[in-house]
Write a protein that binds this DNA or RNA. Structure first.
Lengths: 208, 208
DNA sequence: ACATGTGAACTGCTTCACAGCG
DNA sequence: CGCTGTGAAGCAGTTCACATGT
């Protein structure tokens, strides 16, 4: 749960050098037992009677989540969402470096955005391999997403973040995450329709 | 699960007028029993020995998900992500209309983007109420997200879609969804770190 | 005394298996 | 005969409760 890592980052400002499972729980909207189970699954980081050292726990989580190294990311699709992602500083801060950008539109080919030259999709496989890309972000129109995903997988990339509003199938040895804003909005509409505000609530967040 | 609705939309091109639970399952990456359970939870839409009528099921799901009406959406934050969302046609197609845009930057105040005039955040509460906003999308920098969320809730909006990379707390009678791209990438990094490609896979999608 | 770490009970969801209807 | 709808079994993840260590 990379959520904890974020919580720690927020907590380190002003809070003491130690946090209890209860504090983390209140912050994260869960229970203290939940927090302890989650963390204990990876090892024993806490000190009994005290809690968890913020700094220690943060370092441990960074190691577990693989944030102690840099990841090479390719962005496929330089449309509205793609360009927004290029300038999303939170990525770089967390060790995710966008090293390559591809697009099918010849008009965009060769243009430089955020210091990155847009390459043609026909050079996708070659580029992914040459730049040793770890993670591919698909920000193409829905129609192109499936084909792109297939090519990305064939080129040997084993992690895909999909922003296109289509379901994508990948081999079991490829990690896939989909961010579908329409689905999220529909979830909210559903909640409102069921009568949030009457007695029941809905609060969903995706975790690691 | 609004995922089914999307699948139906994709299936309606070319496929027959009827689908079996097995077909939906393969498309959605689950099992036939799962599909039947999910759908049966809201009623009996299928015909035994045949399957589900694509058109009938789609209409039923639209009703359940509240997509038979239009939802009034406000966008708070007209930065990179915000502007990308404004031109995201999939929203409008699904009945989500962005009716108001707010931003704190005086330079953007009054400018028109995608046919929407940017208003100052100080008029947030007034605007939300006047335009009878159903859903607020928070696309502000991380630092401002919490304050904005609080004001939105106080103004009576009961559904929030948060794009800022911070955890937000809302009363139980407010529906909240968070789209955190950094968390998604971290999830992928974690999967790669654990050795996807060895024997285990990770495939996560958020549903309704 | 305080807060972790963990076995035990529990809850909710997924899978199985089959009766029933077209 | 095929596929749905659903009770029953199985499983994973959460909550409870307490023993243990500082």
């Amino acid at each position: 749960m990379s959520l904890y890592l974020r919580l720690l980052g927020e907590a380190s400002n002003g809070a003491g050098a130690t946090v209890s499972s209860g504090e983390l729980a209140r912050w994260g909207g869960t229970t203290s037992a939940q927090v302890r189970k989650d963390l204990s699954h990876f090892g024993s980081f806490g000190k009994r009677g005290l809690g968890y050292s913020v700094a220690e726990l943060r370092d441990a989580l960074q190691g577990i989540l693989g944030l102690d190294r840099r990841w090479r990311v390719a962005l496929i699709g330089a449309g509205r969402i793609g360009t927004a992602l290029m300038s999303y500083h939170a990525f770089r801060e967390r060790g995710f470096e966008i090293r390559a950008v591809f697009d099918a539109d010849p008009a965009k080919l060769g243009t430089v955005r955020q210091g990155l030259k847009v390459r043609g999709v026909e050079k996708l496989e070659e580029g992914l391999r040459r730049d040793q890309i770890d993670i591919a972000i698909i920000a193409t129109p829905a129609g192109a997403a499936r084909e792109v995903a297939g090519r990305v997988v064939k080129a040997g990339v084993r992690a895909i973040l999909n922003f296109a509003p289509v379901s994508i199938e990948v081999p079991v040895d490829v990690a896939l995450r989909s961010v579908d804003m329409t689905v999220e909005l529909e979830g909210l509409a559903f909640a409102l329709n069921q009568g949030v505000g009457k007695k029941q609530a809905l609060s969903v967040t995706s975790g690691s």
